[in-house]
């Protein structure tokens, strides 16, 4: 599982695929004060990106891809 759940923290690990999108969307609704950790994320599917944009969770850590990092930075609020 590229999405690792640890308490209220969801860690994106490696290549995160479209199959995770529904789980993520549900998690953003269910988990209180959810925090997303992207530092070990190598890539994510468009579906995950738009779920993050829609949910605007707290993000910590930047993904390894510079371009992806700057996309996330501009589109999702960042408090990390």
């Amino acid at each position: 599982m590229p999405l690792v759940f640890e308490g209220n923290v969801i860690r994106f690990d490696g290549h995160c695929t479209v199959e995770e999108a529904l789980t993520l969307a549900q998690a953003l609704v269910d988990i209180k004060d959810v925090e997303i950790v992207l530092s070990s994320c190598e890539s994510m599917h468009t579906a995950l990106l738009q779920t993050l944009i829609a949910g605007q969770p707290k993000i910590t850590g930047v993904p390894q891809s510079k371009d992806l990092a700057s996309l996330i930075r501009t589109l999702v609020r960042s408090e990390g």
Partner: peptide, 13 residues
């Protein structure tokens, strides 16, 4: 839409 309404499989970007 609000996250509860979101259809993550419909590309909106």
């Amino acid at each position: 839409a609000a996250i509860t309404e979101l259809d993550p499989y419909r590309c909106n970007l």
